[in-house]
Every structure is written in structure tokens, then in C-alpha cells.
């Protein structure tokens, strides 16, 4: 299929925004006292989130995990409130309660980021059940890593979703590593998508560094889910440029391997495709880059200038 020009440009924008947002975080989290807690990034694998979410509609819901930034930005999160939350500021999307690991934006259909590996799929089952129960047009997408497919909760959820023909897509963002474990160290199967057969649902393998392939695959799975035909498991083969977190020295990732995957950069790939098709002039591309830079710098300024919560605000949003 030919992807419309607007969609191509939208995906390029979010690829660049996700990349620049995380490049900024890479630098900021090295400054002592600037950003609290862990810093876990999706740099290098942005095409999965961008391509998937670009295929969704506003009424669709995503359930994401610790590598959530590209998912959330593409779903429409304001970079300012995301950055402020990552800084631990009161103006953050969750008033400083969640930090980068549990970002929750129900207002854009992204109600849950769970960092418990494998916890997303059962919750996605519940969210999709509600859509089916109320006969709503929306569907649910759940992002997991390859490591999550070793959790029992992943299998329970896929089985139930298939059994009840729920409108849900499970997206395995296979970045080759679960923590410091290579895929062959945690499973004997080559394609995570093969697990779908055990639940009688389609399992699809796609190039996770190609946003266009992810997008077209997502459209098919979305149509299937919305038509009541049930869930799909999509495995997106990609690679994590950074460590598990920013404190990880990546001793287990061969330098040549990282270099080889950097050559397959999903942002550059989309930019080249857009240029090759004549969808954007050199001048307009520059303007797009400048807009992205402005969004990131404004987000940082907003976060820097925002106040921290008062300590007693820890007791707000408590009911028991």
C-alpha cells in the first residue's frame, strides 16, 4: 500500500521528536541531581512505537512499559508534561508521583505504563474487554519487550484474549536483549511471533526499524481487532542502542553489533524514504527539525522552571 504523505510526515516528525527527546534525556540524566531515579530509553527502536501508534485512532488505547517515550509522544503526549514528570516536578502529567517509569496519561488513551515486566498484557486484556463489553469502536495495543514473553502473565493474557476474541494487539518490541540476556539465552525459539500459534492467533514478524512496515502491519491487525476477529501478536525486530538503563555499561553488547544496528537507524531510514519520494523539500525538512528542537527545548525549560511538589503532596490521591 502507499502510505499517504501526511502520515509519512507525521511519522517522521514523531521519530525525530522521540530521538531528540531521548538524546536530551541521555545528557540530562548525567548531570548530578537533575533527574531522579532510573533512565530507561528506547533509542534505536523508535520505529516500533511510532509506526504502531500512527496506525491507531484517538479512541484506541495503549498499555506501555518502561521504554515508553516514543509510544507516548506519538499518542499525543505533550512533551512538556512528560519532561516535567521525568524531572519529578509538580507540573508533570502525574504530579511527580510516577517519574519516567510509570507515566500515565489516560486523557490521551495511555492510562498505564507498567514497569513490572509482563504486567501489561493482562491489563490490556481488561481494557480491550471493556471496549468489547460496551461495543466501542476502539481497540487496545499492548507493548512488551522480548523478555516479557517469558512471564506467565503474558501467556495467560494471550490465551484469554484469543479465547474471547478481544480487540487487542500485542506488540513484542524485540530489541534482542532482556536485561543483559541475549535472546538465545532466554528462549530457544527464533521468532517470538511463533508463540502466537499456541493461542491460535496470527503471529507476524516485521522489520522493527522500518516505521512504514510497522505501520502497514499495524493497520491490518487493527482492522482485524476492530472487526471482532480477535488479537494479533506482532514481533518487531529491532535493537536497543543504549543499555538496559543509562547506568548499564553495555559490556555484553558487542561494539560491532551496536555499530551495525546504528547503520539501520530508524529515523534516518524514514527521513531518506520521505526525501526519496519527494514528500518534503530540504527547506521544509530543516523547518521540521527546528520545530522538533523547539519542542524539546521548551519541554526542558518548562521542567526546569516548574516547582517540585511540596512534601505533603505525597499524601494526596490517597483513599485507603
Amino acid at each position: 500500500m502507499t502510505i499517504p504523505k501526511d502520515k509519512m510526515l507525521e511519522m517522521l516528525h514523531f521519530l525525530m521528536l522521540s530521538r531528540r527527546f531521548e538524546e536530551a534525556l541521555t545528557d540530562l540524566c548525567r548531570i548530578e541531581g537533575k533527574i531522579p531515579g532510573m533512565m530507561i530509553l528506547c533509542t534505536g527502536q523508535e520505529a516500533v512505537g511510532v509506526g504502531m501508534v500512527a496506525a491507531l485512532r484517538p479512541e484506541d488505547v495503549i498499555i506501555t512499559n518502561h521504554r515508553s517515550h516514543a509510544h507516548l509522544l506519538t499518542k499525543g503526549a505533550d512533551p512538556k508534561v512528560l519532561m516535567a514528570e521525568i524531572y519529578g516536578k509538580r507540573t508533570g502529567c502525574n504530579k511527580g508521583k510516577s517519574g519516567t517509569l510509570h507515566l500515565a496519561l489516560p486523557e490521551i488513551g495511555a492510562p498505564c505504563t507498567s514497569t513490572v515486566v509482563g504486567a501489561g498484557p493482562p491489563i490490556a486484556v481488561g481494557r480491550a474487554f471493556a471496549q468489547q463489553y460496551r461495543n466501542e469502536p476502539g481497540i487496545t495495543v499492548c507493548f512488551v519487550g522480548d523478555g516479557a514473553t517469558g512471564e506467565g502473565s503474558f501467556h495467560e493474557a494471550l490465551n484469554l484474549a484469543s479465547l474471547w476474541r478481544l480487540p487487542v494487539i500485542f506488540v513484542c518490541e524485540n530489541n534482542r536483549y532482556a536485561g543483559a540476556q541475549r535472546q538465545e539465552e532466554h528462549t530457544r525459539i527464533e521468532n517470538i511471533a511463533d508463540r502466537a500459534a499456541g493461542y491460535r492467533m496470527p503471529g507476524v514478524v516485521v522489520d522493527g526499524n522500518d516505521a512504514m512496515s510497522v505501520y502497514t502491519t499495524a493497520l491490518d491487525a487493527r482492522a482485524r481487532a476492530a472487526a471482532g476477529e480477535g488479537p494479533t501478536l506482532i514481533e518487531c525486530k529491532t535493537y536497543r542502542w543504549r543499555g538496559h538503563g543509562e547506568s548499564d555499561p553495555q559490556l555484553y553488547q558487542p561494539k560491532e553489533e551496536i555499530a551495525a544496528w546504528r547503520a539501520l537507524c530508524p529515523v534516518a531510514r524514514m527521513r531518506d524514504a520521505v526525501r526519496a519520494r519527494g514528500l518534503i523539500s530540504a527547506e521544509d525538512l530543516k523547518a521540521m527539525e527546528a520545530r522538533v528542537e523547539t519542542l524539546v527545548q521548551e519541554a526542558i525549560r518548562f521542567a526546569e522552571e516548574s516547582p517540585y511538589p511540596e512534601p505533603h503532596e505525597a499524601l494526596e490521591d490517597v483513599y485507603a
Partner: peptide, 21 residues
Amino acid sequence: DTPVSEAAIAGLAVGAAEAGL
């Protein structure tokens, strides 16, 4: 009536509740 899947049963409740059920 669900399969024997306690994590999925409890997750079903969490996700559906967030949606307002």
C-alpha cells in the same frame, strides 16, 4: 467463566476498571 489464569483474571479487573466498568 474464565480459564485457570489468576493473573489474567486480576488484570482483567484492573484494565476494565480503568475503562469505567
